[in-house]
Amino acid sequence: MRDKCKLSICAIMRDEGCYLMEWLEFHKLVGVERFYLYNNNSVDNTTDIVIPYIQTGEVIFHDWPLHPGQIPAFEHCLKHYGRESEWIAFIDLDEFLFATEKNDVREVLEEFKDYPGVVVNWLCFGSSGHIKRPKGLQIENYTKRAPDNFQSHQVVKSIVRPEKTLGSAGTPHEFTYLDGLPVTESKQPLLGGSRTDISSTKKLRINHYKTRSQEDGDYKTRRGRPTTLQPRNPQLFKAYDRNDVEDLTIQRFLPQLKNALAERERVLNYELLLNQQYKTPNQLVFDYQKYDMIDSANNKLKRSFKQLQEIQKELDKSKSWLDHIEDNSLMV
């Protein structure tokens, strides 16, 4: 069994490749140590993006073709990985969980260690007027949300203590527990259902980018629901495309997130370059000045470059030696 971590996330995903790295790196910033991801028939580049995270042990990855598959995925996660985490948050790829004032969600969860679960309210963000999918980050592009009294803000997602959790209650929002009830951030027991009477996001919140752009919304409608075999209502985008309030709370993480993503991109580019060089050992020239080499990544690349040069020299020597042997054998 892997080392027990404080906070993990379980999510099912489909064709979220263009948003996946942002989502992963953001949640790493706010204290998530491990991700249990269930790939539900993606046809984009999801697998390519997630491979480096699998290699580091940050992501546990399952191909999950079952449809509808969200509830079975959550059940599978609790059964097989429940003992590996003190807390598991069950959210989606269009949801960003964070502490409203503190930087680390784990610090807030310390207040709730005597409860089997904590529920967190949504805040639903609209398209911010984007018709086409804009370049850049979600948390930078989508800054406007529905008003505080928007009815869907009463919807919750759950962060559960697996050791005290029996399983899903049949929806992606709520769970059943061995003993006791989950509580809101104000420590009020949630008596049932997936909604609170009053939305509260003073300690914890989920920015729910439910619509994203019109282009994204149209695709989500065609894709259908992850929990049923029913298609989505085509009017869903219009109902949730509310842009009444500008909310920049999450953007305090933006500088760190951009740095993390830039570093991840550099490492990926170096690894791709090295792989290319291994495949074409006769083409070992590339311009170091073209890249912003930093610290260990720079040293690693230079060492590998030198090693490849030595290998090339040895290959040339071996080829020369074999040619010599072959010539002599022909002379005999």
Rank of each mutant, 00 (worst) to 15 (best):
C10S: 15
M21T: 14
M21P: 00
E25F: 02
H27V: 04
E33G: 12
R34Y: 05
N40E: 03
S42L: 08
V43E: 11
V43Q: 13
P52Y: 07
T56D: 06
E58L: 09
I60Q: 05
I71K: 05
H76F: 09
C77R: 09
L78F: 05
S85Y: 05
I88C: 02
F90Y: 15
L93P: 00
L93K: 02
D104N: 15
E107C: 06
E110A: 15
E110V: 09
V118F: 03
S128Y: 00
I139A: 05
H153W: 04
V156I: 15
I159R: 07
H173P: 07
E174Q: 10
Y177C: 05
L181A: 08
L181S: 10
V183E: 06
Q188V: 13
L190A: 02
S199E: 03
S200K: 14
L204N: 04
I206V: 11
K210F: 14
S213Q: 04
E215H: 07
G217M: 06
D218P: 00
Q251F: 01
Q251K: 06
F253M: 05
F253P: 02
N259E: 13
L261H: 09
V267M: 10
N269A: 14
N269Q: 10
E271P: 00
L273S: 07
L274E: 08
K279M: 09
Q283T: 08
F286M: 06
A297H: 14
K300A: 13
K302Y: 10
Q309R: 12
K313A: 07
K313T: 14
E314C: 11
D316N: 15
S318E: 08
K319R: 14
L330E: 07
